[in-house]
Amino acid sequence: MMPDLGKYAAEVVSAYAVSLGLLIGLVALSLRRSARLRDALRQVEDRQRKTNG
Rank of each mutant, 00 (worst) to 15 (best):
A15V: 00
L41P: 00
Y16S: 13
S30A: 06
G53I: 05
A15N: 09
L20P: 01
I24R: 09
D4T: 05
L41M: 06
V27R: 00
M2D: 08
R38H: 09
E45Y: 08
D39W: 15
N52G: 07
S19F: 10
A17E: 08
A35C: 09
R36V: 13
L41R: 09
Y16T: 04
I24H: 03
L5N: 03
G53L: 06
D39V: 12
S19H: 05
E11L: 08
T51Y: 06
L5G: 02
V27A: 07
R42I: 00
N52R: 12
R33Y: 09
A9M: 01
M2L: 08
T51H: 04
V44E: 06
A9I: 02
T51V: 13
K7Q: 08
R42G: 01
V18P: 00
A10E: 06
S34T: 14
R49C: 08
G25Q: 09
V12A: 03
L41K: 04
E45V: 14
L5H: 03
M2C: 04
M1G: 11
K7H: 05
A35H: 15
S30K: 09
A40H: 03
V18G: 02
L37T: 09
D39I: 15
L31Y: 01
I24D: 01
V18W: 10
R32Y: 08
A10C: 07
G53D: 07
L22S: 15
T51R: 14
D4I: 09
T51S: 02
L26H: 08
Q43G: 07
S30Q: 10
L5S: 01
R38A: 09
D4C: 00
L37V: 12
A10V: 03
A28I: 12
S14R: 07
I24T: 07
A28G: 06
R42T: 14
R47A: 14
V18K: 14
V27E: 00
V18I: 15
S34H: 12
R47K: 11
V12D: 00
L26G: 12
A40C: 01
Y16C: 02
N52E: 08
R36D: 05
A15M: 00
M1W: 02
K50C: 01
K50L: 06
G25H: 07
V18M: 06
N52M: 12
L41S: 03
V27P: 00
L41H: 04
Y16H: 14
L20D: 03
R47Y: 03
A9L: 13
E11I: 01
I24S: 10
R49M: 11
L37W: 01
L29S: 11
T51A: 13
L37Y: 15
Y16E: 03
L23Q: 04
Y16R: 05
L26P: 03
R38M: 06
T51E: 01
A15S: 08
D39R: 14
A10F: 04
L37S: 04
A9P: 01
A40K: 05
E11Y: 04
E45F: 14
T51P: 00
D46T: 15
V18F: 10
L23D: 10
G25E: 13
Y8W: 04
A17C: 02
